[in-house]
Write a protein that binds this DNA or RNA. Sequence first.
RNA 1: GCCCCUGUAGCUCAGCGGAUAGAGCGUCGGCCUCCGGAGCCGAAAGCGCAGGUUCGAUUCCUGCCAGGGGCACCA
Length: 532
Amino acid sequence: MATVAAEGSLGLDVDPAEVHLERPARREHGDWSTNIALVTAKKAGTNPRTLATALVEVLERHLPDHVVAVELAGPGFINFRLDDGWLHEALAAVLDEGEDGYARPDIGHGEKVQVEFISANPTGPIHVGNGWWGSYGDALARVLARTGYDVSREYYVNDTGGQIRTLGMSLLARRRGEEVPEGGYRGDYVTELAAEYDGTDDVTVAGRWAADRILERIKATLTSVGIVFDEWYSQASIEESGAVDETIALLASKGLVYERDGATWFRSEQLGDVRDRVLRKANGDATYLAGDLAYHRDKFLVRGFDRVIDVFGADHHGQVASLFAGVEALGVDRSRLEVKLGQMVSLVDGDEAVKMGKRAGTAIDLDTVIADIGPDATRILSLMSSLDQAATFDLAAVREQSAENPVFYVQMASARIGGVGRKAVERGVVRASLADVDLSLLTHPRELEVVRCLEELPEVVADAAADRAPTKVTTWVRHLASCFHGFYHDCPILADDVDPALAQARLWLVEASRLGLAIGLGLLGVHAPEAM
RNA sequence: GCCCCUGUAGCUCAGCGGAUAGAGCGUCGGCCUCCGGAGCCGAAAGCGCAGGUUCGAUUCCUGCCAGGGGCACCA
């Protein structure tokens, strides 16, 4: 606002996309800062410092609300120093809007978006990577839901095809008390399921039965870490509905399909893929790609999602170009599809590397990790690094040094907040209504730091949504916890020598902290315990 | 060979166009008559290499080096 007023009176030609009003990294650079002189000087035919000096003079003649000083700094930044009043107003706004209303920027405008994630084949327990990418998908969905998107979470169940027959074959072998043949699934869970199976010897029937049982286990595992879905979409249902044939026919009608060597091919190369792909094999089976294209046709053209975000593991990178080619071929603008690839996750346990391999049954189950370090630690750890980072986690460090775990650091803040509430009750202190409390008594640097942090949350949430990066929320939550611990350490709330009016203001600051933590942890799917 | 991701403090990770690059663990040194010290304060220590774009690059572009992943009529 200040910059707008200034540019008006000087008649500058500014590019709004380049001009930023931001919080400087360093406190001594003021509360807010703008680079307007830096980016506009060349067009104005002058140098940044000269232009900034002129702008500062204009601004000093009519200071905006709460601004007490405007300064030229560094290469041409204009820094604004505010009185504490703006922070008190910000705090009041946080409390006024509350847990449901605060930090809910509408950037989605009701756009209908589907987030598809995990979608692990129901041929065995899900592994740690699924859990990591699942935490991402779930948190992203929560962030999008908070920022005005109409979100649907979906798990695509690959309950058909060769792998299901392989699963059935493995199950039947175990039931006969034999070894699982080469290429089959050898995990102990197959043996356990075989003992319960009393159906026919048909491999598909046996496979389907086992897949159903395994899927139930997967659901239970995911539920235990707070990951839930709106839809479990069956691949078999797509094939059985005839949608695959319809999709191939649709592509054929556009001249994008041809026959060769007995198979049906998709001309994906002309749409950006590295080569053409098979849709129907010589044996008559549809390929995974054909089913996936039918599935995406269903997402965009039948169910009408404006946007689809697919979260895959990096090991599925090879199918991305084909998918984009297919979506475009179906007449859907490819910008409506986003594919997020989660890099591989590796675990170590002290000095020992933890093996990851699925068919051999040596993969570390997500269940095992959850049982080891707990659901909250599992979730927050998986949301500490970005999806693009091939992260390594040391189970021993999280387990044995649990007191030093970041989860505990954040939850400790939550527990301390709960402790203040309990202590207040114990001492008969009742929080007065906000209208009767003077928040301007909050002048301690530690108190103001907490407010500054809380004030940033709406922007953090908006950035997390726009960048599809829920990890930004994790960073913020840890920062808030840090600010709160500092405040808690230096600013007694219920001690005898604290002025009652100040105690009231501090109680409300504690409440605002609780609220901020609840919003942040809620977006991450981590509990905010009142006691530990 | 081609495609994607990553190289930031001893270790694990944030930051991703701005002014003196952050956190946790580890190391070293302080703080408990006080609401949970599972905390707080301080110190040492870092942007793989080389060009380019820019007023300004850890951040964007190119090349190189190193690591991970992918290139099926499997899913």
